[in-house]
Write a protein that binds this DNA or RNA. Structure first.
Length: 169
DNA sequence: GCCAACGTTGGC
DNA sequence: GCCAACGTTGGC
């Protein structure tokens, strides 16, 4: 953070299925921090590895939930490092083709900042003209790590009942 | 549970 | 390298 940061803080949308890991799980974790692991898509991996930086914000999105939508705000506290679950044969995310000398998958670590006062449902996202180009509302968009434009982040935080100025520079 | 959309695999 | 088959995601 601070002097070492050269690019402006970015905002990401991170998808999770609450049945496996929910925002409440993050809130109840030690120091409200957790590893964001199990990503097994190359495009999402590339974002985590190449673009996600400490201090970036994350909109935590619940998929396969009722309702689906953005439920919480978090910040990135650790940049990409090898995801150990790829080497664990007992883990759902085991990848036998990944070599320890050349790990294929990475994880980051995030820390919960706030549960949203109001869940911003997918229906709300789709209904807001400011968010017409947001990736998550596009048909067939399955990416689990998505970049969010600053204006989109501002609109989402407004819909959530938060003051965007408190979180966005 | 259905199924559209998309990513990955593997035969050729 | 093409592309059909298959597997997964995720909204509904």
């Amino acid at each position: 953070m601070g002097a070492s940061r050269t690019a402006p803080r970015r905002v990401w949308l991170l998808k999770t299925e609450p049945e496996s890991f929910s925002f409440d799980d993050l809130l109840s974790a030690p120091k409200k921090r957790a590893r964001w692991d199990g990503v097994r898509n190359y495009q999402a991996r590339n974002f985590l590895r190449d673009d996600v930086a400490i201090g970036d914000l994350a909109l935590v999105y619940h998929s396969s939930a009722d309702p689906t939508g953005v439920v919480g705000l978090a910040r990135v506290v650790k940049a990409a490092e090898p995801d150990p679950t790829q080497f664990d044969p007992d883990d759902d995310h085991f990848d036998g083709k990944s070599q320890r000398e050349e790990p294929r998958w990475v994880q980051i670590e995030i820390e919960a900042l706030a549960r949203l006062p109001q869940i911003v449902t997918l229906a709300m996202l789709k209904a807001d003209p400011r968010l017409a180009r947001m990736l998550v509302v596009q048909r067939g968009q399955r990416l689990s790590v998505q970049p969010v434009q600053a204006g989109e982040a501002r609109a989402v935080l407004e819909l959530a009942g938060l003051d965007p100025a408190k979180f966005l520079s």
